[in-house]
Simulated scan of single mutants.
Amino acid sequence: MRFNMRHAFRMAKWARNPPGEKRVKLVFAVLAICLLLFGFERMFGWPEWLTMDEAPGGRLKR
Protein backbone atom coordinates (compact mmCIF):
# COMPACT_ATOMS: atom_id res chain seq x y z
CA MET A 1 0.00 0.00 0.00
CA ARG A 2 1.32 3.38 -0.99
CA PHE A 3 1.59 6.22 1.49
CA ASN A 4 -0.47 9.26 0.55
CA MET A 5 0.41 12.68 2.03
CA ARG A 6 -3.24 13.73 1.80
CA HIS A 7 -4.12 11.07 4.39
CA ALA A 8 -1.32 12.28 6.67
CA PHE A 9 -2.61 15.86 6.50
CA ARG A 10 -6.16 14.69 7.20
CA MET A 11 -5.01 12.63 10.21
CA ALA A 12 -3.07 15.62 11.55
CA LYS A 13 -6.12 17.85 11.11
CA TRP A 14 -8.33 15.36 12.97
CA ALA A 15 -5.73 15.06 15.75
CA ARG A 16 -5.81 18.85 16.24
CA ASN A 17 -9.60 19.16 15.87
CA PRO A 18 -11.30 15.81 16.56
CA PRO A 19 -14.87 15.19 15.36
CA GLY A 20 -17.77 15.80 17.71
CA GLU A 21 -19.49 13.19 19.83
CA LYS A 22 -22.53 13.01 17.52
CA ARG A 23 -20.38 12.30 14.47
CA VAL A 24 -18.46 9.56 16.32
CA LYS A 25 -21.76 7.96 17.37
CA LEU A 26 -23.03 8.17 13.79
CA VAL A 27 -19.91 6.49 12.40
CA PHE A 28 -20.11 3.69 14.97
CA ALA A 29 -23.84 3.20 14.27
CA VAL A 30 -23.24 2.91 10.52
CA LEU A 31 -20.36 0.51 11.16
CA ALA A 32 -22.53 -1.61 13.47
CA ILE A 33 -25.32 -1.78 10.87
CA CYS A 34 -22.84 -2.85 8.20
CA LEU A 35 -21.41 -5.56 10.45
CA LEU A 36 -24.90 -6.82 11.31
CA LEU A 37 -25.84 -7.04 7.64
CA PHE A 38 -22.57 -8.81 6.85
CA GLY A 39 -23.10 -11.31 9.69
CA PHE A 40 -26.71 -11.96 8.66
CA GLU A 41 -25.66 -12.57 5.06
CA ARG A 42 -22.87 -14.94 6.13
CA MET A 43 -25.17 -16.92 8.45
CA PHE A 44 -28.25 -17.23 6.24
CA GLY A 45 -26.92 -16.55 2.75
CA TRP A 46 -28.09 -14.10 0.14
CA PRO A 47 -31.82 -14.36 -0.67
CA GLU A 48 -32.66 -15.38 -4.21
CA TRP A 49 -35.28 -12.64 -4.56
CA LEU A 50 -32.57 -9.98 -4.06
CA THR A 51 -30.38 -11.37 -6.84
CA MET A 52 -30.64 -9.55 -10.17
CA ASP A 53 -31.25 -11.63 -13.30
CA GLU A 54 -28.81 -11.27 -16.18
CA ALA A 55 -29.97 -11.33 -19.77
CA PRO A 56 -27.85 -12.84 -22.54
CA GLY A 57 -24.97 -10.54 -23.40
CA GLY A 58 -24.31 -9.54 -19.79
CA ARG A 59 -27.05 -6.89 -19.57
CA LEU A 60 -29.50 -6.78 -16.70
CA LYS A 61 -33.19 -7.39 -17.36
CA ARG A 62 -35.60 -4.59 -16.57
Score class of each variant (00 low, 15 high):
R23P: 00
R23Q: 09
R59G: 11
K22V: 02
W14V: 05
G45C: 04
M43K: 09
G57A: 09
W46K: 11
D53A: 12
V30H: 10
K25V: 03
E48P: 00
D53T: 14
L37K: 03
R23M: 05
E54D: 14
V30S: 10
L36T: 15
D53P: 10
L60S: 10
M43W: 04
V24D: 03
T51W: 02
V30M: 13
P47D: 08
L36C: 14
R6V: 03
K22A: 12
L37S: 15
A32G: 15
T51M: 14
R16G: 05
V30T: 14
P56V: 15
V27S: 04
G45V: 01
M1Y: 02
L37F: 04
M1D: 06
I33C: 11
F38Y: 10
E54G: 06
V27I: 13
A55E: 12
F38S: 12
G20H: 02
V24E: 09
R62L: 08
L50F: 06
M1S: 08
I33N: 03
H7A: 13
R23G: 00
G20I: 02
E41P: 00
L36D: 02
A55H: 02
W49V: 13
K13S: 11
A12P: 00
R2W: 00
P18N: 08
A8W: 02
E48V: 14
G57L: 08
A8E: 07
R23I: 01
A12M: 15
G45L: 07
F9W: 08
F3R: 13
L50G: 08
D53F: 01
R42W: 05
F3H: 07
W46H: 11
F9N: 05
G45H: 02
L37R: 06
V30P: 00
P18R: 05
R2K: 10
I33W: 01
G57H: 03
A29V: 04
L26I: 01
V27P: 00
P18F: 00
L31Y: 01
R16F: 05
K61S: 07
E21A: 11
L60W: 05
R42I: 05
P56R: 13
A29E: 13
P47H: 07
M52D: 08
M11W: 02
F40G: 08
L26H: 06
L31Q: 15
P19A: 09
T51Y: 01
R16N: 06
L35T: 12
G39E: 03
G45S: 06
K13G: 05
C34H: 04
R6N: 09
F3C: 05
L35K: 04
M43L: 15
V27A: 12
E54L: 15
N4P: 00
A29W: 01
F44H: 07
D53L: 09
E41H: 02
K61V: 13
A32C: 06
A29T: 11
L37G: 15
F40T: 13
A29F: 01
L60I: 12
N4H: 03
F28M: 12
R62C: 02
G58Y: 04
R23K: 09
W46T: 14
F40I: 11
R59Y: 07
V30I: 15
R16L: 12
A29D: 13
M52Y: 05
G58S: 11
A55T: 10
R59S: 14
A12R: 10
G39L: 08
G39V: 09
K61M: 11
K13D: 06
L37E: 11
F40R: 01
P19D: 09
P47M: 09
P47A: 07
G39W: 00
N4G: 01
L36A: 15
F40C: 07
N4M: 05
